[in-house]
C-alpha cells in the first residue's frame, strides 16, 4: 500500500491527504464540527506570508488554522 502518515503541519502547499486521526481531544471537537472528519480529504492550499497560519481546503471550503493546531491532525498520504 505504501501509506505514509504525516502531521498536517508537515504538508507543503498543494499537498493533500486523508484525515486519519487527532492527537488533541479538545481541539479535535472543534475541528470535527467544522467538518474535519476522519476519512475526509484535506489539502493545504495556502501558507500565510510569515509561515503561519495555514489555509486548508475541507469539504469544499477554506479553513485557516495555526501550525501548532495543524500539528495535532494526522493525515494519510496516498
Amino acid at each position: 500500500m505504501g501509506l505514509e502518515v504525516k502531521y498536517l503541519s508537515e504538508l507543503h502547499k498543494g499537498q493533500f491527504g486523508i484525515i486519519d486521526s487527532f492527537t488533541d481531544y479538545e481541539l479535535s471537537l472543534k475541528l470535527l464540527e467544522m467538518g474535519c472528519i476522519p476519512g475526509e480529504k484535506i489539502e493545504v492550499i495556502r501558507i500565510a506570508p510569515l509561515g503561519d497560519p495555514i489555509a486548508i481546503s475541507i469539504t469544499g471550503y477554506m479553513l485557516s488554522l495555526r501550525k501548532d493546531e495543524a500539528a495535532t491532525v494526522r493525515v494519510r498520504l496516498s
Binding site: 481541539l27 472543534k30 467544522m34 489555509a55 471550503y61 477554506m62 479553513l63 485557516s64 495555526r66 493546531e69
Partner: peptide, 11 residues
C-alpha cells in the same frame, strides 16, 4: 489555557 485560531475563510 490554550488559544485556538480555527477560522473559516469565507468566499
Amino acid at each position: 489555557e490554550r488559544s485556538f485560531f480555527v477560522m473559516e475563510l469565507p468566499m
